[in-house]
């Protein structure tokens, strides 16, 4: 009985830790390439609105980075609570720095 209950998480770990093969890594690579390519196209196209282009390329950068963090750096896998917390805190400090520096110099 007891044994049976305990074995459940093991099969769970097996399912998530046994790697599915490189499929998702190649998909991440393809998506990153496409987003990078689109960012270059958007910038070299002079007819688009500047604010829109900047918003678009920043959004595409964030999407690309989230994909790479989740798949290439395995953040989607179990046991990454502290990793995620660490990066979120780092990102928070980063945004504070950017806003402060810009505010300091220009207002």
């Amino acid at each position: 009985m007891n044994n049976h209950v305990e074995e459940k998480p093991v099969t769970n770990i097996k399912r998530r830790d046994n790697h599915e093969g490189p499929k998702y890594h190649f998909i991440t690579y393809a998506v990153s390439m496409v987003l990078t390519f689109l960012a270059f196209i958007a910038v070299l196209n002079e007819t688009l609105n500047k604010n829109f282009v900047v918003f678009l390329i920043l959004a595409m950068a964030v999407v690309q980075v989230v994909l790479q963090l989740a798949y290439w750096m395995h953040m989607k896998d179990r046991g990454h609570f502290y990793a995620i917390t660490g990066l979120i805190v780092g990102t928070f400090v980063m945004f504070t720095c950017v806003i402060m520096a810009v505010y300091w110099v220009w207002w």
Binding site: H80, Y82, A83, G86, L87, V89, G90, T91, V93, M94, F95, C97, V98, M100, A101, V102, W104, V105, W106
Partner: peptide, 25 residues
Amino acid sequence: VLGFWLFLGGETVLFGTLFATFIAL
């Protein structure tokens, strides 16, 4: 692995300050 993630959190801050300086200047 855990320690390295904390280091990467610190690296994020480091690059954040450099990005902040660049964006401001």
